[in-house]
Amino acid sequence: METTALQSLALSYNRLGRAGLRQLLRTIPARSLRSLRSLELDSVLGDTHGDIGDTHGDTGDIGGDIGDIGGDIGGELARYLQQAGCALCHLSLAGNHLRDGDIDELARCLPGSLRSLELSANPGLGPGTFRKLRPGLGSLRMHGCGVGDLDGTTRSRSREKIQELP
């Protein structure tokens, strides 16, 4: 029997918590790294008052108490995305209590293959998110974020970085 490589993994709305998400990212087989095109992890971290499997009492956002994705699960996500051969085209992190500070590390580790980024329902994300993302995204979704009115500079930079806004 011939097996096919995993191309899409959608685990949205499963309360994995940080411990479960950390374990998941560590156990995705290396052969899937080159074939996985879509990773959907919407609302997997629970609420902002702690989450399942987390015994440290941290908040439910990816960056923990300090809003830095480089710590806690953000480091795991960064390590996953930075692996050689990562072919991810679509990443969805909607509803995970992200803040602008979380985007700093994430923006540095997005693979060149990434064309679509879903960040909706993260009200802690504001206009600064646009300035941090690399050029080449075909789609950036930020419904329900704290973007508000974009100033002229941010609007101009956004046009340069994003080819098409949904």
Score class of each variant (00 low, 15 high):
Leu45Tyr: 06
His49Tyr: 11
Ser92Tyr: 11
Leu77Asp: 01
Ala84Tyr: 05
Leu88Arg: 06
Gly71Phe: 02
Gly57Val: 05
Thr55Tyr: 12
Asp104Leu: 11
Asp72Cys: 13
Asn96Glu: 07
Glu105Ala: 15
Cys86Thr: 10
Asp68Tyr: 08
Ala87Ser: 15
Ile62Gly: 00
Asp54Phe: 00
His97Ser: 14
Ala107Met: 07
His49Ile: 04
Leu91Ala: 11
Ser43Pro: 02
Asp104His: 14
Tyr80Thr: 09
Cys86His: 02
Asp100Val: 10
Ala107Pro: 02
Gly70Val: 00
Leu93Asn: 07
Glu76Cys: 08
Thr55Val: 07
Asp72Arg: 15
Asp68Ala: 14
Leu88Glu: 05
Ser92Val: 05
Leu45Pro: 01
Thr48His: 15
Arg99Ile: 10
Gly75Phe: 00
Arg79Thr: 10
Asp104Ala: 07
Leu98Asn: 08
Gly95Trp: 01
Ala107Leu: 07
Asp100Ala: 08
Leu91His: 09
Asp68Thr: 10
Cys89Thr: 14
Tyr80Pro: 00
Asp102Thr: 10
Gln83Leu: 11
His97Phe: 08
Ala84Thr: 12
Cys89Glu: 15
Glu76Met: 05
Gly60Ser: 14
His56Cys: 13
Glu76Phe: 02
Ser92Gln: 13
Ile52Lys: 12
Ile73Met: 03
Asp51Arg: 05
Asp65Tyr: 07
Gly74Tyr: 00
His49Ser: 11
Ile73Trp: 00
His56Phe: 12
His56Met: 09
Leu98Glu: 05
Leu77Cys: 03
Glu105Leu: 06
Asp61Ser: 15
Asp51Trp: 01
Ala94Asp: 09
Ile69Thr: 11
Leu98Ala: 13
Asp58Ile: 07
Asp61Cys: 15
Ala84Lys: 12
Asp65Ser: 13
His90Ile: 07
Gly57Leu: 09
Gly75Thr: 01
Asn96Pro: 02
Ile73Ala: 15
Asp61Tyr: 04
Gly63Pro: 01
Leu91Val: 10
Gly57Ser: 09
Gly101Pro: 01
Leu77Val: 10
Leu81His: 09
Leu77Gln: 03
His90Glu: 15
Gly67Ile: 02
